[in-house]
Design a protein around this nucleic acid. Sequence first.
RNA 1: GGAGAAGUACCCAAGUGGCUGAAGGGUCCGCACUCGAAAUGCGGUAGGUCAGCUAAGCUGGCGCGGGGGUUCAAAUCCCCCCUUCUCCGCCA
Length: 424
Amino acid sequence: MHDLREIRENPEKFKTGLIRRGEDRTVIDKVLNLDEERRKLILEVETLKSKRNSESQQVGLLKKKGEDASEIIVAMKRLGDEIKELDEKQGLIETQIEELLLGIPNVPHPSIPDGKDDKENVTVNLWGEPTKFTFDPKPHWDIGTDLDILDFDRAGKITGSRFTIMKKSAAKLSRALISFMIDVHTSQNGYSEIYPPYMVNSASMTGTGQLPKFAEDAFKIDKTDYWLVPTAEVPVTNMYRDEILDISDLPIYHVAYTACFRAEAGSAGRDTRGLIRQHQFDKVELVKFVLPEDSYNELDKLTANAARILELLGLPYRKVMMCTGDVGFSAAKKFDLEVWMPSYNNYVEISSCSNFEAFQARRANIRFRREAGAKPEFVHTLNGSGLAVGRTIAAIMENYQTEDGSVIVPEALRPYMGIDKISK
RNA sequence: GGAGAAGUACCCAAGUGGCUGAAGGGUCCGCACUCGAAAUGCGGUAGGUCAGCUAAGCUGGCGCGGGGGUUCAAAUCCCCCCUUCUCCGCCA
């Protein structure tokens, strides 16, 4: 969410941001008109309230002296009705402004390219080379089914499409990856581990930007105000909602594993096979709370932390900078890490690292003070996958497959797996 | 699920209808004591948010878990909700 005062002072900045994203900029003028009306009303109603307060005080004083105050009381009763009417009008306008503000995306950072969609993203660098095979490589869904470690059919039976049962070495690989990733981030990259709830309330979903605009992408628990987390970003970022953080605690780095749940409402027919697009998947997430002046440096570090996992696993990847059309609603700048996926003969997103600047912090009201007595400022929040576990399993199975249908276990995972090869 | 208690600013905490933006602490700053620090003593500043006029600042509104209500006037009275704690019940 944006600061109303900032929009008032610099509307062009926000209009330009919307234009760069290819979105309707007239919302800014709508907000400004409502804001003007709102401030006029405030001025009017506050004058009346000030009068009511002082006159009411007179009533108390008169009564103490045993004098008659009924004239003031009658007058104030009338004034009270007037105030009530104006208050309601003001509340209505403020609700309208709030609704508009919650629907305005973040302003893209100047450094990111203009573009309509993912085709105009820019590759920043490549690590490794697409894996070459001396035989015809199989997609991971075939490898997994043939090894009897992935079971899509029974998952469909017990739940539905876009769910998977992982068995034996696949199940263990999943556990191994989660532990491996968390261990690297806590012991080498300075993150502190969090294990949060998998359900959050609507206020949290609003705080990070999933609500109100993207309700159809998430699963809502019937008869409650709870949502299944689409990413650990939501519970972890909202940990500090409505708090003023101590500057000596900044920057805060958290790493959290959760299962993630996504309705995938707009993805019918896409990535229907395998582990790439599931309603439930595992992810290790990195979340940072930092000083505003540090956030872009922190974004580079966070992206490097996520990339480090791919490098340790020996998986070829590229780093891509998102263009304005693909940067996402809440982010000002975003890098995707895309892993080489032989079955797609292409790179597939496996991590998304974003700087939200104060966009989420303002929604969630997460602040800090530079010194005692100083005015609280909003922190900058960042997050990134470190990594998506299901896609990592798919990438390992495909890139490390052998001609006989088994899968070599990457060196870094062997201590966690206890074996160096997954075979029949 | 049942019974009871509580929620006041960054933290602790007093406050049951008007003079309470809210005592007192802590935190923070200065001074004294000390070789220095701690502890102690003395003095002092600040406090969230919105609006207005401005250069610092000043004025006003809101605000005491959240939302509604009663009243000329609400931290204080009433209703609903949330959270925490204690006891009981149930349970992995």
